[in-house]
Simulated assay, not measured.
Amino acid sequence: MSANPNTITIDGQEIPFTAKQTIMDAALAAGVYIPHLCHYPGLPPSGNCRLCMVETGNRNVAACITPAVAGQEIRNNTPELNEVRKSITQMLFVEGNHICPSCEKTGNCKLQAMGYYLGMLDDHFPQFYQRREMDASHAEILLDRGRCILCDLCVRASRDVDGKNVFAIAGRGTNAHLIVNSPTGKLADSTIATTDLAATICPVGAILIKEQGYQVPVGQRIYDQHTIREIGLRESIAKKNDD
């Protein structure tokens, strides 16, 4: 064990951590990528997507909500864990309308990029074809619940950064869905604005700014040029520099 009392080990690499850091935060700060979709630097973690499951002490834990503890031996980048992550990604694809060639978010979509990163070649599971309401009532912002992966990033961004509490998750299990906290339940009657973090943080194509689709040609978009690992580490570095 290291002489430094404030270190953990991930896949044999010694990682320093500070008080109250999670395994995820410590890993990203050290340039170690742990796959994730519902984590975003600076927002309270929720542990929703479960892609960040790592093995420590003969059990699996979500890295984004598990505190770093001195002496932890953690396994992250293993064939077994990545196979589980691929299955989770496949399930997310079939639970919604994720037909990449027809989606404005293609090339900028974290779910799509995660599929590439994990070597996903097919959906594997049968399509659910759930019916979820689209809300095009807002003049500038579109809400397509059919693409929502219930990561609740927009919920946390609106509540903790924008200070507006526009979104929430209602229901449980297969009935869980994104709702708008407005008198009518419509986006047009909420206080959301295009400048809000909640309007741009969606990792998929569920929340889109209108009249901006396809401004960047396919082939020149974020994940056409970089892997989700590279972008995930950049987000962490950018947040660290902001602090």
Rank of each mutant, 00 (worst) to 15 (best):
T194S: 13
N58E: 08
T106L: 11
R85N: 10
C100E: 07
K86N: 05
S87P: 01
R145D: 00
N97W: 07
N76P: 03
L111P: 11
F17C: 11
V61C: 09
I231Q: 10
T22C: 10
T22P: 12
V94D: 02
E104Y: 12
A168Q: 10
M24F: 09
G31K: 07
R75I: 07
S190E: 02
L118S: 09
P79H: 03
L28W: 07
L43K: 01
L208Q: 15
N60M: 14
I74A: 04
H98T: 04
I15C: 07
L28M: 15
Q90Y: 03
S137L: 09
N165A: 15
V161D: 00
N58G: 12
I228A: 05
Q13D: 06
K105G: 05
C52I: 09
D189G: 11
C64Y: 09
P45Y: 09
P126R: 07
D162N: 03
P41L: 06
V54W: 09
G47F: 08
E80R: 04
K239P: 00
H138K: 08
A113T: 10
P35Y: 06
D189N: 14
L51G: 01
I88A: 02
L150G: 03
E140Q: 13
D243A: 08
N77T: 03
Y116P: 04
L208D: 11
T191K: 15
N82Y: 09
D242C: 03
N165K: 14
Y33N: 07
R145V: 02
M120S: 04
Q13R: 15
L143T: 04
V218N: 13
A63S: 15
N181P: 05
K105L: 09
Y214H: 14
N241H: 11
P79R: 00
A193D: 12
D162M: 01
Q90W: 04
N58A: 13
R172Y: 08
D122T: 05
T227A: 09
G71I: 09
D144P: 03
A19R: 13
A27C: 11
G146H: 00
E235I: 02
F167N: 00
N48V: 12
